[in-house]
Design a protein around this nucleic acid. Structure first.
Length: 431
RNA sequence: UCCGCAGUAGCUCAAUGGUAGAGCAUCCGGCUGUUAACCGGAGGGUUGGGGGUUCGAGCCCCUCCUGCGGAGCCA
């Protein structure tokens, strides 16, 4: 007899194993108990047949409750009637802890109830699948950059001032001074690009905006590459290659999870191939006008507008060259039209919204200083950032991608809050 | 901050202004192949808080609280 994880069992047919886990669900008839055990690596139908076991084992099988921790020992058997094609013929059961009144039943629950029990909700099959996809995505991101010789540079979370001067920040006391939780690692990444060439940061980001939509969290994870000498065209190429590579990886390695999530994979497959459609901001405005949206040149797009612009094919789209006035201060003006910025947003299809925002950065110290003044930002706080231009200025570009929005899209979720283990939103800090 | 929707059993939801109900969960019983198993029985309620109208309020009115969705802002 050996200890085994459930994922190994298809290769252990006929062997006697012990599995440690939790009771996921139970069904019984007069002389049979079907105990579905989960151990994190999979789900196992364990069959207890009354004539085949001691009376004590039969009694234990009858009293074990949902989510009780237990160890089952028996013989692995190929069985087409069992989910997964393998089941365990039980000889011994040890209940480690009998679980009383598990709150989350196999029936429906509302979002508020489930979020109050997020620490338990994570055990459910659907949440398990989402976290597996998230895990594959974050590992795929690091793999993507590592194999292309990017260096991971972690940005600080506690910062002395607003990075972009737009969003509302969480303020905290820092030994008598004010400090803020970071809303972007980008500004700290640019100096590192001068040190290593190709860099990225990957960490939590905080926005104190009182947003109440399915697309917003107050704490979310963002990955931000920054590349020295990369111009705007190169940035568009990078964003496309990045997202298509990640989608292909998920389709290849998370088939089971996407099936459990009932994700329409055919809707995701087009995004695994390049190129993605690109549309100039000005053309996007015209397209929206033709569709009856009350937009004028200079407006930013809302959720409905983004959805209307999205491609029919299931590919994300790139919207390029936004008006400078509605974009961040550090973005390089378009040489063809200084009122525009070399900025790009990537919009996921099917209403999942913006997943990437990026730009070429201003490389001239004079131009940057002027922009800081125009945005009424405190010049003194940005001296170190201006140094990137003063001491060997160079063209560079980068973007930020929101992890939860991508997970939401990949998994086909209705709400961003399911895409992170412990969502932080307005009115929700527990558990 | 603004607009809209909602709050009834542990959970998901019903209930013309007239005796508060069902399914699931829990407990008891039945069934040798179940797939959110099924069948029978039992217990379980200050209808979010406060005030008002009425012979009578879960339902109508006022107010507060909480949650959800959207706008703004963004990834």
């Amino acid at each position: 007899m050996r200890d085994a994880e459930i994922r190994e069992l298809p290769g252990l047919i006929g062997e006697r194993v012990r599995v440690s886990g939790w009771l996921y669900n139970a069904r019984s008839s007069g002389k049979l108990h079907f105990l579905v055990v989960r151990d994190g690596s999979g789900y196992l139908q364990s069959v207890v047949f009354k004539p085949a076991v001691d009376e004590r084992v039969w009694q234990e099988a009858g009293r074990v409750t949902q989510e009780s921790s237990l160890q089952v020992t028996g013989t692995v058997k190929e069985e087409t009637r069992a989910p997964g094609g393998v089941e365990l013929q039980v000889e011994e059961i040890v209940i480690v802890q009998l679980c009383p009144d598990y709150p989350i039943t196999p029936k429906e629950h509302g979002p508020d109830f489930l979020l109050n029990h997020r620490h338990l909700w994570l055990r459910s099959k659907r949440q398990h699948a989402i976290m597996r996809v998230r895990n594959e995505l974050t590992f795929g991101i690091r793999d993507f950059f590592y194999t292309r010789h990017y260096v991971n540079i972690d940005s600080p979370i506690l910062t002395p001032a607003a990075c972009e001067g737009t969003s509302t920040l969480f303020e905290t006391d820092y030994f008598g001074e004010k400090a803020y939780l970071s809303q972007s690692g980008q500004l700290y990444l640019e100096p590192a690009a001068a040190a290593h060439g190709k860099v990225y940061c990957f960490g939590p980001t905080f926005r104190a905006e009182k947003s109440k939509t399915r697309r917003h969290l107050t704490e979310f994870w963002m990955v931000e590459p920054e590349v020295a000498w990369m111009r705007f065209d190169g940035l568009l190429e990078l964003a496309e290659e990045f997202v298509s590579t990640l989608v292909a990886r998920i389709l290849d390695r998370c088939k089971q999870e996407l099936e459990w999530l009932e994700r329409d994979v055919a809707r995701l497959e087009p995004a695994a191939a390049r190129p993605y459609p690109r549309i100039d901001y000005g053309d996007a405005v015209e397209k929206l006008k033709a569709k009856g949206f009350p937009v004028t040149f200079g407006d930013d797009f809302g959720g409905d507008e983004e959805t209307a612009l999205a491609d029919e094919s299931g590919k994300p789209i790139l919207i390029t060259r936004y008006p400078a006035a509605i974009k961040a201060f550090y973005m390089e003006p378009d040489p063809l039209d200084p009122a525009r910025a070399l900025a790009v947003d990537m919009i996921a299809p099917d209403g999942y919204g913006e997943i990437i925002g990026g730009s070429e950065r201003i490389s001239s110290p004079e131009k940057l200083e002027q922009r800081i003044a125009e945005h009424n930002l405190p010049l003194a706080a940005f001296q170190w950032y201006l140094d990137v231009r003063r001491y060997g200025g160079f063209p560079h570009s980068g973007f930020g991608m929101g992890i939860e929005r991508v997970v939401t899209w990949l998994c086909g979720l209705q709400h961003l809050r399911e895409a992170i283990p412990y969502p932080r939103m307005i009115n929700r800090l527990y558990p």
